[in-house]
């Protein structure tokens, strides 16, 4: 199973160090494709755009999702049965439908194509990922500590910041990371909604692949992979620090 999962990635990484022009015929070890990619202004601009969109969208989505999860805590409020599934609505709509519909929507209400629209759209489809993660944690969270804080006359705000939030923090972080990666990965919606100076990494890569598959594409992919893994490791590390 894990072999099946990893062989394609392994091959991808190995061939990014290929010295030759061809993506499938090995011609010796070389870092030339990494050098070529790193020197490209377009690659750097796309990386910056991707990181900006992903950070903003993940931050907004996590904030909204956390608030919503807090709202759904404890005794169900009226309409909750409808509201919780509604928050996963973006998850069940095929990406191509979202992309097309959002494009038309932006045109008709006059939102200019570009970073702002891109961040808004990404935020929306990131909310379910953050929400599901945070809600799952909240459902199994013990509220005795909060009860105790209340009994000790801590005001609600204090209870929230010194008890609830620290307990919830790992889930919020996990939700953020998930949202971040989902945003970083998105291609179809970004392609439809990108405007001037908002080309993201997947769009840039798609452009490279149209011309032909050189090991440069592998190099970009490997860089993307390393970036994703790095974020997860940082999250895991923070998580462990928290627990200590």
């Amino acid at each position: 199973m894990y072999v099946y999962l990893y062989i394609p990635l392994l091959i991808l990484i190995v061939f990014s160090f290929n010295g030759g022009r061809m993506a499938t015929i090995w011609e010796g070890f070389s870092l030339r494709w990494y050098a070529e990619v790193m020197q490209s202004d377009q690659f750097r601009a796309a990386t910056v755009n991707s990181l900006v969109v992903a950070s903003c969208a993940a931050f907004l989505a996590t904030t909204l999702a956390t608030l919503a999860a807090l709202g759904f805590r404890g005794r169900p409020i009226r309409g909750q049965g409808m509201m919780v599934p509604f928050l996963s609505f973006p998850l069940v709509i095929p990406e191509i439908v979202t992309a097309v519909a959002t494009l038309i929507f932006f045109i008709s209400i006059g939102v200019p194509l570009g970073m702002v629209g891109l961040i808004a759209a990404h935020t929306v489809f990131c909310i379910p990922f953050a929400f599901i993660t945070i809600k799952a944690r909240m459902d199994v969270m013990d509220d005795t500590l909060e009860q105790a804080a209340n009994d000790l006359y801590a005001d609600p705000r204090r209870t929230f910041f010194s008890v609830t939030l620290p307990l919830l923090w790992p889930a919020i972080l996990a939700g953020f990371i998930l949202a971040f990666i989902v945003s970083l990965d998105d291609f179809v919606i970004s392609l439809f909604l990108a405007g001037p100076s908002s080309t993201t990494l997947p769009i840039y890569m798609f452009g490279m692949m149209r011309l032909g598959v050189t090991p440069a594409v592998n190099a970009v992919s490997t860089i993307l992979l390393v970036m994703s893994v790095l974020f997860v490791l940082i999250a895991a590390w923070i998580n462990r620090m928290q627990r200590k």
């Binding site: 932006f106 045109i107 194509l113 405007g195 100076s197």
Partner: peptide, 10 residues
């Protein structure tokens, strides 16, 4: 489509 959609700035 992008220009029709009012993508200004290019």
């Amino acid at each position: 489509a992008k220009l029709q959609a009012g993508a200004a700035g290019y």
